[in-house]
Amino acid sequence: MGMENEKFRQDRTPLFLKVAEVLRQRIMREVWKTGELLPTVNELMEEFRVARVTVREAIKILESEGLVDPKRGRGTTVLPHKAPTRPLSVVTKLSELVDLYRGDVPDLESLDDMLTELPDGVEIGNSAGQYHMIRRIHSRDGQRYCIITLFLAKDIFDKHEAQLRTHLALPVLFDDPDIEISIARQRLLISKCDMESAMHLNLSVGEPIAEVRRVLCDAEETILYMADVIYRGDYIQLNMDLLA
């Protein structure tokens, strides 16, 4: 099919899904605002270098999601739609992160809960030996927005178990006067959703996600807390003060 753009052939995802994703993101970023018309089918065919049926299938997907209203002879109109419920800022200071989470009580859905060891490949710090691992889904207003796997040093978990099972962990640790955090690192990677994450976060396989790893250590560089978090790509935003 000579009309298909080669860059759309780089994986096995059907072309109409790729076109739909590009159009969806443009709508969410308000490249086309509510009430405006999308480019014509012919124009989209030319831009993406795909067949007419591919564009029509992509628009059908957006129609099923309530994002557009295609009318023969009138074009495809962008419909009113909701932005993500509450974009979560990815901050670059521990105190700001704790303040962001303080008082926030999302719905928590447990997936795993066990005594274990740290996984291999942790870049900094030393193991405390035993950790309590909690893996759960966070949601707000009925929308699942992240999967988090927490590793908490056993003595800390035992001390704060009741709170840690029902609240976000960072404020609990930060407010304990006996815990001194000397090292706090955070890494963020943008990647694509796999089958399991897609199932838990109500996404399609291949949609963008953000993977965050946070590690907190004490003065002896013992890891007290580690979290691996997978966020929906449409739920987070990164803001940085470039003059700070």
Rank of each mutant, 00 (worst) to 15 (best):
M1V: 10
K71Q: 15
V212G: 03
E43I: 01
V105R: 07
G75W: 13
L170I: 13
A184R: 08
E220A: 12
E196Q: 10
E123C: 04
H138R: 15
S139I: 07
H167M: 11
F157Y: 15
E6F: 15
D120H: 04
L203G: 04
R144D: 00
G2V: 13
V122M: 05
R26E: 03
F174Q: 05
L111I: 11
F174H: 13
I183W: 08
M28C: 00
G73R: 15
R214A: 00
E96V: 02
I59R: 02
D113C: 02
R52I: 06
P39S: 03
K154H: 12
L242R: 10
M1I: 09
L62W: 12
L203F: 09
L168N: 06
R135D: 00
L224E: 04
L118N: 01
H138E: 07
H81Q: 06
G233W: 13
V50C: 05
R140V: 10
E180Q: 07
G2Y: 12
G75A: 08
Q237G: 09
D99E: 13
L203T: 07
I124D: 00
L37N: 08
L67I: 10
D155A: 02
L189M: 10
P39K: 04
S204T: 15
K18P: 08
G233N: 11
L17R: 14
C217M: 10
G103H: 01
C193G: 05
M1C: 06
T34Q: 02
L150S: 09
L111D: 02
V19R: 04
K7G: 00
R56F: 07
L88T: 09
D99S: 13
R165L: 13
H81Y: 14
D112Q: 14
D176H: 13
N5H: 15
I181G: 02
I61S: 00
D228L: 15
R213F: 00
L38W: 08
T54W: 03
M133R: 15
S64A: 12
E109I: 09
E21F: 08
D141K: 05
L111E: 02
P208V: 12
I27N: 01
K71M: 07
L79F: 05
A128D: 10
V31A: 03
T76F: 03
V50N: 01
W32S: 00
I61F: 01
V78E: 01
R49P: 01
V98P: 08
I147A: 02
E57Y: 09
H200C: 03
R144C: 00
L38Y: 09
L17M: 11
Q186D: 04
M199N: 07
V90D: 04
Y231V: 04
V212I: 11
L62F: 06
A198T: 09
G125D: 00
G125H: 11
